[in-house]
Design a protein around this nucleic acid. Structure first.
Length: 540
RNA sequence: GCUCCUAUAGUGUAGUCCGGUUAAGCAUUUUGGCUUCUCAAGCCAAAGACUCGGGUUCAAAUCCCGAUGGGAGCACCA
């Protein structure tokens, strides 16, 4: 029925007339057996047996409203108050992708209007992180570049009677907000407000006075209940030092900046959703251009905290080493762990632009990463919990092994003398009298089983149905520390076993790899070379 | 407490605006098979979902109302 109306919309007005006919036909057809139905269809309507075409999936992000090709300007405004993490990546990637999609411009704006929180170190880390992600900006600026403009607009608001200086105590302001009551300061005239504004420059101490927007103390949206526009902060700003002491709040800064920077579409995470009304209101009063605002959900990984509030104590207690600890979702940690920026981009694009909360499991990212990493990771042998195996009558003293099973990545030669290490896990399954195959080398008949193993080389051994294991020559084995990061929190509790460390043997070829290179240790998983003596497990 | 946002398989999403051409598509996960001198990759297949309750309609994942679950805001942080 739906199908008929879908393909032939002209019947829609006559639904009542045809519905009787249809049910009659359907009941006739249903009396036939499945085989009979199939034969009938084949004879009369062979075309319906052709498999349906697949739906064309939309590529990339959904279309923007009111977006004109070549005229879209987006922005990413991080506050330099911490190290960049996966959440930053999401905001940066979505906004840069939109700019790219419409052939527009993309702005990086360091949102630095709280000198107490911001540091050059973070500013630099954010830049490094974004560069690593491969994100390019057309304009790079800081909110604090426009301090004079904020003052100008602030005074304009005061003179318009749309803002006032409030000298109430913090607790009272908060209480009034809850009770939806205006305070006496809101009744002061423009002249008095201007005087007080001047006094904020020197006389008032931090906390004594703020500039408030004249919103609506009765509004349901608590953000509109006369929010703060400016406040006094005496801390030293990381680029401007002590030049200013009146600083704009987030809402004031974002409103003005997005407007004058020409931002057409401002996407940010959901927790700012209620501020949209305020930002629009400020710009309306000032008669300034408004950007379209959109929102998306925050992105976090299950069991991997993003906030500094949680990470900082972990570092202080020594539970994680630093912000680049591979268990963390910071960009630096992800990089060290062997996650590729392309994988992060694909992953984030795959999440879409929903407002429902996303608590993604880490293996979703791993799956994307594996596809990037597999093609160019050299395959090496590595054994853990090493056990010794000595083999008699080896026919050669060296073997050549390809570096990749499919792609041509060259070969390496391994010198052998009959004394090997094999993995403890494999050793447990080996029985005396059975055969195993040392990968790339040949079959071994096991003659002795125990703490150490002995065996004999088998000529032209069969490769079918025989355990194939990796090995490392004892003489040239290189010992490294293998770090295996695991989930940091299980049900909000710190996972004491979140970091596993193994001492393992690798082939000497490991030493020739570049630092940061991704390898696949055969039958173990993908790992990133962290240093000559340490590797970090990426994923299976 | 008040206000706002949100709800599709184990997980992440597409579809929802403009109800019918899709008995809900993709990815991941899991399981089986093929391939392979790796437990990787590749290929094939199977499994698995519209939160609940009402309403509107010939027809609802899609519109309306209510309930419930999840998140956010009520900062002189951003």
């Amino acid at each position: 029925m739906g199908k008929i109306l879908g393909t032939k919309p002209e019947f829609r007005s006559k639904v009542k007339e045809i519905s009787g006919d249809i049910s009659e036909i359907v009941s006739i057809v249903n009396q036939l057996s499945l085989e009979e139905q199939e034969i009938e269809i084949k004879e009369k309507f062979p075309e319906i047996l052709i498999p349906k075409e697949k739906i064309v999936e939309r590529e990339g992000l959904p279309e923007l409203k009111d977006a004109e090709q070549g005229k879209v300007i987006t922005r990413f405004p991080p506050e330099p108050n911490g190290y960049p993490h996966i959440g930053h990546a999401k905001a940066a990637i979505i906004n840069s992708e939109y700019a790219k999609m419409y052939g527009g411009k993309f702005i990086l704006r360091m949102d630095d209007t709280n000198p107490e929180a911001e540091r050059m170190e973070y500013h630099a880390a954010i830049k490094v992180g974004l560069e690593w992600l491969g994100i390019e900006f057309d304009i790079v600026k800081s909110t604090s570049d426009d301090m004079e403009l904020f003052y100008e607009k602030g005074m304009e608001l005061i003179n318009l009677g749309k803002a006032y200086v409030c000298t109430c105590k913090r607790e009272n302001i908060s209480k009034n907000r809850r009770e939806r009551k205006a305070c006496k300061c809101s009744k002061e005239d423009i002249e008095k407000n201007n005087k007080n504004w001047e006094k904020m420059n020197d006389k008032f101490k931090p906390g004594d006075a703020i500039v408030r927007f004249r919103g609506d103390m009765k509004a349901d949206n608590a953000v509109m209940r006369d929010p703060v526009l400016f406040r006094i902060i005496e801390g030293k700003h990381y680029t401007l030092g002590e030049k200013y002491r009146i600083w704009p709040s987030y809402d004031m800064a974002v409103a003005i900046e997005d407007s004058i920077d020409g931002v057409t579409h401002a996407y940010r995470s959901k927790e700012f959703e209620l501020r949209k009304e305020l930002i629009d209101a400020i710009l309306d009063v000032l008669n300034m251009r408004k950007p379209a605002q959109g929102f998306f959900s925050r992105l976090e990984f299950k069991g991997m905290p993003i906030s500094k509030r949680i990470i900082k104590p972990l570092i202080e207690e020594g539970k994680v080493t630093w912000y680049d600890d591979p268990r963390l979702p910071t960009l630096e940690a992800l990089r060290r762990r062997g996650i590729k920026p392309e994988a992060i981009r694909k992953f984030i694009m795959s999440l879409g632009l929903t407002k429902a909360n996303t608590l993604a499991p880490f293996d979703a990212l791993e799956a994307f990463n594996r596809k990037f990493v597999d093609a160019d990771s050299i395959r090496l042998f590595m054994v853990s919990n090493a056990k010794k195996l000595s083999v008699k009558n080896l026919p050669t003293s060296s073997v050549e092994i390809p570096n990749h099973p499919i792609n041509d990545m060259g070969k390496r030669t391994i010198k052998i003398d009959g004394n090997f290490y094999i993995s403890g896990e494999d050793a447990q399954t080996i029985k005396e009298g059975s055969q195993i195959r040392l990968l790339g080398l040949g079959n071994i008949h096991i003659t002795k089983q125990g703490i150490e193993f002995e065996g004999e080389f088998v000529e032209n051994g069969d490769t079918k149905d025989i355990p194939k294991i990796q090995w490392v020559p004892q003489k040239t084995a290189h010992i490294i520390k293998m770090i295996i990061p695991k989930i940091l929190f299980i049900d909000d509790k710190f996972n004491e076993d979140s970091l596993e460390e193994l001492d393992v043997y690798t082939e000497p070829h490991y030493l020739q790899l570049k630092e940061g290179e991704e390898v696949q240790f055969v039958r173990f998983g993908y790992c990133r070379k962290d240093s000559q003596n340490q590797a970090i497990f990426t994923h299976k």
